[in-house]
């Protein structure tokens, strides 16, 4: 390699690095837009582990439930934390209703909310839940490692947590993430 070629290569290097960098950045932004990448999402410590032990009172008229009730069905199921005061929870409710219509068992946990507000929420937005329990002080949520509502946990038929989805579910996230996983676990 003579001196001129070397100099040309050196001159082109920053451009090349910038091009590769912007390519990667572009992919990142595209995936963020698709919802397949969330920079704030945390990896759940529950993945590959059984549900934490809990036993919560019911949101009337629903009976409460415990971790053992979720796994007793021996079917893949969702555990969904929600609250009437949370906007993404309102946004995801049609998606949950659609999942319920397809026969997916969804266990609801009302996070830090009053009975009256939860009742109002379920009456206006629909109730996609098999049962609704109340985590009024949010202590069970901490044992789940929850850091915001809504959060949805996918439990397989043996009771092992396979996915935590933080944030509101949408048609896109169901198509790209949830539905393929549920199909695999079924």
């Amino acid at each position: 390699m003579d001196a001129t070629t070397r100099r040309r290569l050196l001159m082109a290097a920053p451009l090349g690095i910038a091009a590769v960098g912007s390519g990667l950045f572009w992919t990142l932004l595209a995936r963020m837009q698709q919802g397949t990448y969330d920079p704030h999402a945390l990896k759940s410590m529950l993945i590959g582990k059984p549900l934490p032990t809990f036993s919560l009172p019911g949101q009337p008229p629903s009976a409460g439930f415990a971790n053992t009730d979720v796994t007793a069905g021996k079917l893949p199921a969702l555990v969904n934390f929600f609250a009437s005061w949370c906007v993404p929870c309102i946004e995801e409710s049609p998606t949950l209703m659609a999942l319920q219509a397809k026969g997916v068992p969804i266990w609801g946990i009302a996070y830090k909310d009053s009975v009256a507000a939860t009742t109002r929420f379920l009456n206006t937005r629909g109730n996609p839940y098999l049962r609704v329990a109340r985590d009024a002080d949010g202590r069970t949520a901490i044992n789940f490692g929850l850091y915001g509502v809504p959060e949805t946990y996918v439990v397989d038929r043996t009771g092992i947590v396979r996915l935590r989805y933080a944030g509101g579910l949408s048609e896109d996230s169901v198509r790209n993430t949830l539905a393929p996983l549920l199909a695999k676990l079924a």
């Binding site: 945390l42 759940s44 410590m45 901490i142 044992n143 789940f144 490692g145 850091y147």
Partner: peptide
């Protein structure tokens, strides 16, 4: 805390 929220 780490058992619930990870090393993060």
């Amino acid at each position: 805390m780490v058992a619930r929220y990870g090393n993060f």
